[in-house]
Nucleic acid binder design. Structure first.
Lengths: 353, 353
DNA sequence: TGCCCCAATGTGAGCGCCCACATGGGATCA
DNA sequence: TGATCCCATGTGGGCGCTCACATTGGGGCA
């Protein structure tokens, strides 16, 4: 039961104004929560709105005023599509959608996703097209775009609010992230606390700021606890199963093989799980595993994976909130760091010996 | 290198018209691929567009003309958010986004997601608000909304193209789906072909048309092969791990326990895997498993899961294509059935005895 | 009482585009 | 050669809303 006009053409602000016996502008003020409207009038208008089932047209609002009620989240085309096509899982997009959509909805906003190529020249051109076409009130840049200063500069020139996801502190502007370095430190401390001294690290890759950050945290923790670190314990698996398998094989073949391995995502952690099994070793008895993603499926492996939960949905939700606040005049800059969680499950225990 | 105007305010159709020495309308014709523009003029205009980096403003296009260049995909709020919050995985949203976004992008369209409650009254009201606010060129209804005739009627009244996802043939209008019944028949035939005669079925639930469809296919195949079917082999797990665990336990405790189990999604298939292991039985030696979802993680279980791949991204992509065609005058109705794939991996083999 | 100020409302214009229609010139036909 | 057509282009108007500004009225202050 949306209203009395159900079935007819669109209900405009004009209709509401007429019904409430006021001008368009006063109705507009009520819609936009502007001050200086008499409570009695406001209520009368609200009743007319409810009665007619009036909902402002977003395109017209954009045309008339400054706001578009749109937040655009930019993902890397290649990483998003190709990885998925190749069958690689990813919790990222789901979480972004859930966190962002919910936050946007609460303010009458909409969030939409766009894909942009990582290549610097293409990225700028594509982003510029998106801006021209959509004129969003804010743009969320995810890695690797969030590290691209040219894009940030472009958005600044176009005067569009920009939230950067998961970039290290040094960058300026609005940033929302989790503390990957601290998380890695925490994980390493946890393993050291269990008695591990030979801890391996399967990194995603050195081009990801996040991965480098985590590696620092891992090294920090090892150094702080005076645990010697063999550089060969640190290996790159590119976030993928097969390379991670091979690297784990190599790790297990070392004379001072690690008794615990940290992996930068779940897929690599699973590869580690399999490789350890293949080598005739036990998880977690012989080798403990901690992952850095925590997709829903990790609860169902044998044993279920101990993992760091990245608060992606919260991060995107916070980014949306910030951008909307910004579009409404609040231009607080700064870095917002959201808490992560280490979820201890079945792949970690004290080392045997 | 977007164009010469980089840095200035918005480039409008007016600027292009002036530069090319024609009227706005002629530029508009070029943008919209209308006929009756001299090739020479068209090229001159195109050059001006490229030079200025002109991109039409989507809100203005919506205001002036009939099209909004927006396709909205409607998901169930509860199923989408609550399940995810409770830690249950779901490949659905990712695939929708990938398939839909790519198809939309190819036509200069954008796709956005909205959540709507399943409750019939709320659903209609919420959908009506979405229509009034966004005026999309088309709406994609996913289950359970795609089975809600009131929503379909509302969209028809509002003259908005509607594509329904995964509803059985009997419903009219534009429908895009996979043939779940045939897929279930195929899976069952495959298992029967391997030599299985006692085949269990872990269904998602009887309120999902898709699940009922699959059950029919399973029963068809059993009947066609003259394999007797014990009704107690068919159980409901609500798509969730824990209930599926219990039902599998019950299944395994039967005197004529199944030698193969079909599950309606991956999470339940994993539960089955664990339950069989717990019972001291082997997969696939003692019991074979086939799942009906094929999320990326299934490749990494031990053994990797044999599963039916639902072509969700293709389905949503096709729905987007249909809706865009419809917005441009092509009003072909009908059911579009996209092919699925049975991916045979490590959880199926001939039964022991 | 008169003045000013500000809260509460209304008015005109325009955002950038596409629609309907009007207009001009060439080819086509008798 | 003139009438007819249709292709190629231009013009005016308006979509639904918000902006900047104008206007009204009532309360506080001297």
């Amino acid at each position: 039961m949306t209203g009395a006009m159900t079935g007819s053409g669109s209900v405009t602000i004009e209709h509401v104004a007429e019904m409430a016996g006021v001008s368009r502008q006063t109705v507009s003020r009520v819609i936009n929560n502007s001050p200086n409207v008499k409570p009695a009038v406001k209520e009368r208008i609200q009743q007319a709105i409810d009665h007619l089932g009036y909902v402002p047209n977003i395109a017209a609002r954009r045309m008339g005023g400054a706001k578009s009620f749109l937040i655009v989240a930019i993902n890397d085309r290649h990483r998003t599509l190709e990885n998925w096509r190749a069958g690689h899982g990813n919790d990222w997009v789901d979480q972004m959608l859930y966190g962002g959509m919910t936050a946007a909805e609460a303010h009458g906003y909409h969030m939409l996703f766009e894909l942009v190529d990582a290549d610097p020249e293409m990225a700028s051109a594509q982003l510029d097209r998106i801006i021209a076409s959509l004129r969003p009130d804010g743009i969320i840049l995810t890695p690797p775009h969030s590290q691209n200063e040219a894009l940030v500069a472009l958005l600044a020139a176009r005067k569009i609010g920009c939230a950067r996801i998961n970039v290290p502190d040094e960058f300026a502007g609005v940033t929302v992230r989790m503390d990957d370095r601290a998380a890695a430190r925490e994980v390493t401390d946890y393993l050291i606390g269990l008695g591990h001294r030979r801890i391996g690290y399967l990194s995603g890759g050195r081009d990801y700021a996040v991965c480098l950050d985590r590696l620092s945290g891992y090294k920090d923790a090892m150094a702080a606890a005076d645990v010697p670190l063999n550089p060969d314990w640190v290996r790159e698996g590119g976030f993928l199963f097969d390379p991670a398998s091979r690297e784990t094989d190599a790790l297990l073949a070392m004379p001072d093989r690690p008794t615990a391995i940290i992996a930068d995502n779940d897929e690599m952690a699973f590869a580690t799980l399999h490789a350890i099994d293949r080598a005739g070793l036990q998880v977690p008895g012989d080798v403990s595993i901690v992952s850095f993603e925590d997709t829903p499926g990790v609860r169902f492996s044998v044993p279920p994976l101990t993992a760091v939960r990245q608060p992606i949905s919260d991060i995107i939700g916070a980014a949306v909130e910030r951008l909307i606040a910004r579009a409404n005049g609040d231009d607080t800059d700064g870095v917002l760091t959201l808490p992560h969680t280490l979820r201890i499950r079945g792949t970690t225990c004290a080392p045997k010996a």
